[in-house]
């Protein structure tokens, strides 16, 4: 048996090297598609964590128009103080809004550079005594002089989730298409590999090698491609997690709740490996199909 493993390992290596360019193309597309997939799952995990937090401390935010006067702001503040429904509230000044914006888009300095601080509105963040009262408070402040809009946390979450679900779908679709193309690349690589070795295969069949014996080196070839690509994707997902975690830790307030752990990344990475392996093996199985019949 050790001897046979020897044979399979050798034949697989020979074939991989013979089709080096195709092999690399296969590995890279598997890597990119699975990284996209893993990245989207990772971000979804973040959102899940973040929105779980939102559900607890339901908040609403009263945004002013950028041109709101100090008097208008003071009036609202007074009313919040007097309201029996409000537990506590905090004022977010233009400057603070800008800081939050900067932190959120820290990796896009040109965006931060371009934003005019005067267009970022000041707001009040409000915690109601009871989450049930959120709508009541919202109605109270909508349409007040200087008030632009009142967003409840649920609404914000819903909007964000809505946007994210579209982004998620888009990225899943892209990674699906890429995964499919990497699958076809592997199918094609294996087909080329069998074509390159058709004489060997013909002789193997003549002398009575079993179909499995003939197939295994090619299956391994596909598996190596899928797994190697998945390994790269695993690494990239891990790095992405580290970067995002770092961003989250350095941020404040609501963004803090969007944490992800190394465990999340590893869990996703294992899925990525499984999918990569399956794509590799399935691709080679399809690539081998025309050789299956004797």
């Amino acid at each position: 048996m050790a001897f046979k493993l020897d044979y399979f390992a050798r034949e697989t290596m020979v074939s991989l090297r013979r089709n080096l360019v195709m092999t690399l193309a296969g590995i890279l597309t598997v890597a990119v598609s699975l990284f996209l997939f893993g990245g989207v799952v990772l971000l979804s995990r973040m959102v899940d964590h973040g929105t779980a937090r939102w559900k607890e401390g339901v908040e609403l935010e009263v945004f002013f128009v950028p041109t709101a006067t100090q008097q208008q702001i003071d009036d609202v503040q007074q009313e919040l103080k007097d309201s029996p429904n409000v537990k506590k509230f905090r004022f977010i000044s233009k400057k603070e809004a800008l800081d939050l914006f900067k932190r959120f888009f820290a990796d896009q300095p040109e965006l931060v550079e371009a934003v005019d601080p005067d267009t970022l509105p000041p707001s009040f963040r409000v915690v109601p005594k009871d989450p049930e009262l959120t709508e009541t408070i919202a109605v109270q402040f909508r349409g007040r002089p200087g008030v632009d809009e009142v967003l409840t946390a649920q609404e914000q979450v819903r909007r964000m989730l809505h946007a994210i679900s579209w982004i998620r779908r888009l990225f899943f679709a892209i990674s699906g298409v890429l995964l499919l193309s990497s699958f076809f690349l592997i199918v094609n690589t294996i087909r080329l590999a069998t074509y390159a070795r058709r004489r060997e295969i013909q002789i193997m069949k003549l002398v009575g090698a079993t179909n499995w014996f003939i197939r295994i080196p090619f299956m391994l070839e596909g598996l190596v491609q899928g797994a190697a690509g998945a390994g790269l994707a695993f690494g990239a997902v891990y790095v992405l997690q580290q970067i995002l975690s770092d961003l989250v830790v350095r941020s404040e307030g609501v963004f803090r709740s969007f944490f992800i752990t190394t465990g999340d990344a590893v869990g996703i990475g294992l899925w990525v490996l499984v999918i990569g392996g399956v794509v590799g093996v399935a691709g080679s199985a399809i690539g081998l199909r025309r050789f299956l019949d004797v």
């Binding site: 001897f3 044979y7 004489r199 060997e200 013909q202 002789i203 193997m204 003549l206 002398v207 014996f213």
Partner: peptide, 29 residues
Amino acid sequence: TVFQDFKLLPGKTVYENVAFALEVIGRPR
């Protein structure tokens, strides 16, 4: 089986060509 066109594996020696037939049916070394 023997054919008119020999069907030997190119790039392999005489020994390897013959050993191949045993190798691929899993005969021990």
